[in-house]
């Protein structure tokens, strides 16, 4: 995204080009222009720009994309950890209401 880049080397996005059918859905849904089509198959043109929203994987009809999708929100992650640790009385749903 113009003017903004987040940490390098953390994205969990993976593309299996062998499975790709070249439909271009990933290019359509990615808000960060991570994918490109090359020789009728998708290519990770800018993997580091991935924000792990999961749209590409969910919309890939060939299941060629894998990503550990979720919302990167510190409060949400803390709440998730607290829930996992079963802190009594904690049932918060995290961020964004």
């Amino acid at each position: 995204m113009k003017g903004f880049r987040y940490l390098e080397g953390v994205a969990t996005l993976e593309l299996n080009r062998e499975l790709c059918v070249g439909c271009g859905r990933c290019i359509e849904v990615c808000p960060h222009q991570v994918f490109q089509l090359e020789e009728k198959r998708a290519l990770l043109a800018d993997r580091e720009a991935c924000m792990e929203c999961g749209a590409c994987a969910l919309n890939c009809p060939a299941a060629a994309i894998n990503v550990d999708a979720g919302v990167g929100c510190a409060s949400g992650l803390i709440n998730e950890w607290l829930r996992e640790k079963r802190i009594p009385g904690f049932t918060g749903s995290g961020c964004c209401g």
Partner: peptide
């Protein structure tokens, strides 16, 4: 980071 349009879960975890 929860409000931005470009941060990832893995990045925030790190």
């Amino acid at each position: 980071t929860g409000c931005t349009t470009y941060t990832s879960k893995s990045g925030v975890k790190k």
